[in-house]
Nucleic acid binder design. Structure first.
Lengths: 354, 354
DNA sequence: TAAGACCCTGATAACGTTAACAGGCGGCTT
DNA sequence: AAGCCGCCTGTTAACGTTATCAGGGTCTTA
């Protein structure tokens, strides 16, 4: 009855061709601006295409052309400024070259990582930028994809592969400098909040912390090291957050001899720690000094403003994109590149009273 | 010479078929677990497939099947917790139904919005969830896509279309309640920070503010309304940030009669305002009370903890996904649905001293 | 013994696009 | 006059997959 609705078949090149009185190939030429087409024909085709509301089929196109002008970006988490800035940097470069960016989120789960890799690979993205936490499963699958000839760039990932480029910030050095900064202010009991054993990045910062202590002849006190550990390969813990900082700091404050300074694994953790310190009625930096990491926008608006370590995030995205373009651009195998960027200590009032 | 590298042709069903001594169709049946296949054959095929490291071609598959099991999510911005939670909610539901989510970011630019819509539509996603700020260009293009039969769900978008479902939070009411809360505390001079004319969401919150003032017989003082205005259709301003809150509050503090309370358009803006208030040596909430919006994780860790309005973000994502599944699931036209979710005032110490 | 149901496999023809080739026309050069 | 080049268009055959139909075998049931 009301079943008037014949199934709306999408418009194809052939439909346009028929209506414009040309061959499909001519329509293709018009739409892709390739090869010669008489001006008059061109206009007629365009008119028909617009009238029919034509939308090209990227699947068929990609299948035939063996490329999709598409790049996949896999993020572990979307909520943090790092991810956003990274994506921005990537897009900035890719746009210039006509690539579209598809982002997949894995929520810091190795299984979801695989799913994202697979989905993007299946849909034949021309390249893959991966900025999730490393895991055995993930690394293996990535190696497979690299083996299949898919260009892969790793960002801040604790995994090296001979066929994939790598961009990262020097988290080790950053952690070292943050800690050294506290030492230079005279601190001798320096805590660390946010230790995780599964996160490459957090681990590096922690190692920088350890090395700085060692280099300056300070003892490592295990009780001063707290934070969300644990997490299996299957289910990794999320990005270190305010609550981890808050709980971690509370734990440190309970100690007989509490630290006079704390290095938090990232700014959110630091903010949580600040909150706990205030709750205890202590002053920053007089009673306890604190350093964060990442220099998120928020960091300069806490009270007191947060001393932190800035990493060139957008730049990492740009470079990742460039590494990728290098690979998509050539049929020859491309030699592997690796770039480790410097971090920069930003001193604010959470360590040095104004 | 060293030109040994014959181009690595990707493995296809036909390759597997040849090596396993069956027809491609049989391989397809094995890999998709559809139809009958003898157990022995199945195992042989699977063995060969694994040995050759087969990866199916989603383009060809999608082309033939006329669906990709893929959904596109367009976000204006990736950095804020709203986007993250929304995406989480969407994924939560889509995963259950075997859909993959591809996210595109438009950086709050109408032009990029179009690019994202087009890219996703071209790649034949089975549906589209759009959570960017509304714009003339964007709305028109969306209408086009809806017309072509692509399922579209709008989230928190100030645009209605008869063919697209809508999910949103009741920002008007939220703004109203936030303001009413301040009024009930006795405030008579209430400022608003973060006014924008291009953002539907911000505008609604603002309207709620205005209405609450009016309903309680308070005058609207234009000098108390500040924040990042401007932005054309082409280039919209970004998410309201700490700096807008900071600058806005500074402006308010300069007034002869400064407000005793402030409603900030979102939590980040509120945090910036808090920072400015402290800089001026004033106390919160004694000198100036402040309400934010969104209840980001940070909000409970500022000092003082922030009174704010919580919106059920993940829930919006879930519902959006469900609306979409309703459409992808049926060939018949589906009646439009719209769901406006309640917001909830969360009172903390930035308005009421402990 | 026929009919039917179930199991297993293969051939064929699309899905919508474009690379590659082919051909025709007109004008310019030698 | 022959040859060539630039312009314009069309035909054909893929790209890799799966829906559909078709066929053959075995087993059960009436």
């Amino acid at each position: 009855m009301s079943q008037r609705g014949e199934v709306k078949r999408p418009i194809t090149l052939a439909d346009i061709a028929a209506q414009a009185g040309v061959a499909p190939m001519t329509v293709s030429r018009v739409l892709n601006q390739s090869g010669y087409v008489h001006e008059e024909t061109r206009e007629r085709v365009l008119r028909v295409a617009r009238a029919l509301n034509y939308r090209r089929n990227g699947l068929a196109r990609g299948l035939k052309r063996q490329r999709t002008d598409t790049v996949g970006l896999v993020l572990g988490d979307i909520a943090n400024p790092f991810a956003a800035e990274l994506a921005r940097g990537v897009r900035e470069r890719l746009d210039e070259h006509g690539y579209t960016l598809f982002i997949c989120v894995s929520e810091h789960s190795a299984k979801e990582d695989l799913a994202a890799f697979d989905a993007l690979a299946d849909h034949r993205v021309d390249g893959l930028i991966v900025a999730t936490r490393a895991s055995k499963l993930g690394n293996d699958r990535l190696a497979e994809l690299v083996g299949m000839g898919i260009p892969v760039v790793l960002v801040g990932r604790d995994f090296r592969h001979e066929g994939a480029d790598l961009v990262a910030a020097d988290n080790h050095k950053g952690g070292y400098e943050a800690t050294e900064h506290l030492i230079s202010l005279g601190h001798k009991h320096i805590g660390f909040i946010g230790i995780t054993l599964t996160s490459g990045i957090g681990l590096r910062r922690f190692q920088g912390y350890l090395e700085a202590l060692r280099d300056h002849g300070l003892a490592v006190e295990e009780s001063l090291i707290v934070g969300g550990t644990g997490g299996t390969d299957e289910q990794m813990p999320g990005y270190s957050t305010e609550s981890i900082g808050f709980e971690g700091m509370r734990q440190l404050l309970k100690l007989g001899r509490r630290p006079t300074a704390v290095f938090a694994r990232n700014d959110f953790t630091a903010v949580g720690a600040v909150s706990a310190i205030k709750e205890a009625g202590l002053r920053i930096p007089e009673d306890i000094a604190i350093v964060g990491y990442d220099d998120v926008p928020l960091a300069s608006h806490t009270s007191p403003p947060l001393t932190t370590v800035r990493q060139p995030t957008r730049e990492q995205g740009r470079i990742a994109a460039e590494f990728l373009l290098r690979r998509t651009g050539s049929r020859e195998p491309v030699p592997r590149e690796e770039r480790i960027l410097r971090c920069e200590l930003v001193v604010r009032e959470s360590t040095v009273a104004r």
